[in-house]
Design a protein around this nucleic acid. Sequence first.
DNA 1: AGACAGGGGAGTG
DNA 2: CACTCCCCTGTC
Length: 285
Amino acid sequence: MGKMKVKDFNLEYTLECGQIFRINRVDSWYYVNAQDKFFKINQVGNEITFHGVDKEFIIHFFSLNENLSKILKEIDKDKYIRKSIDRYRGLRIIKQDPWECLISFICSSASNIPRIKSKIKALSESFGNKISLDGVSDYTFPAPGKINDYKKVLNAKTGFRAKYIFEANNSLNIKNLNSLRTQSYNNAKNELKKINGVGDKVADCVLLFSLGFYQAIPVDTWIKKTMQLLYFDNATISNEKIREFGLDYFGTYAGYAQQYLFMLSRNDMGTTSRLQLWKNGMLEE
DNA sequence: AGACAGGGGAGTG
DNA sequence: CACTCCCCTGTC
């Protein structure tokens, strides 16, 4: 068991904000699968306890070496985002393995979180290796090249995404993905979009959640609705314009802003009308 | 019961 | 740009 004090970190918000799918809550513990790791972690106040990985991994994976309060100060542009920052402070962008992140978000298209989870779980069970921790067993995420049976990919209920996953597995190696880190945002994004099944949204997820591009803004239907309402008087705006605005408005850490706004819209206002009411409430204050 | 859309993307026109 | 289809499943 490792223990450490943390500052500006909230385990629950970080794990449950939709950036990672292989998590399992059991009582006060989260069991987390990441690449070939399987560990458990809990948080009480400003102390985290973990088992299955070392402290160095935890610090890197949860970006604990980043100065979060400085990041939040940079994106704190108005009362809307401030509300979300106040509510979800401690949410950090995780540093995932790029390959696992890529396949996960290819799985995410036209799907919902329970289904995304079940697809990734099935892929891991079919192609990963068994791993156990304190008597609990699970599977590692298959390395590139291991997802080599198309029938089994289909059996993971991946549907029309099966061919994308199978193709990526045959054509990519992890070095290609990691080399994107040193490229410009635009170049890295264009490279990712060459992969079948990867468009703007999925590319931005991979850039933000695994390659350290904090300016990436994944524009999904929720962020689109939320930003149209808050910043465009509810007009219909193209995803590209929303991205441009977001980067210009929030700056270098626009991806963080996106994630905080996403939590707000997903958890606190399940419908557009509630979002509208919330905005009106804010205007009255 | 049966349509319908869900954290998209590719392929057309 | 604006469509349509893609596979599957929970939801109304």
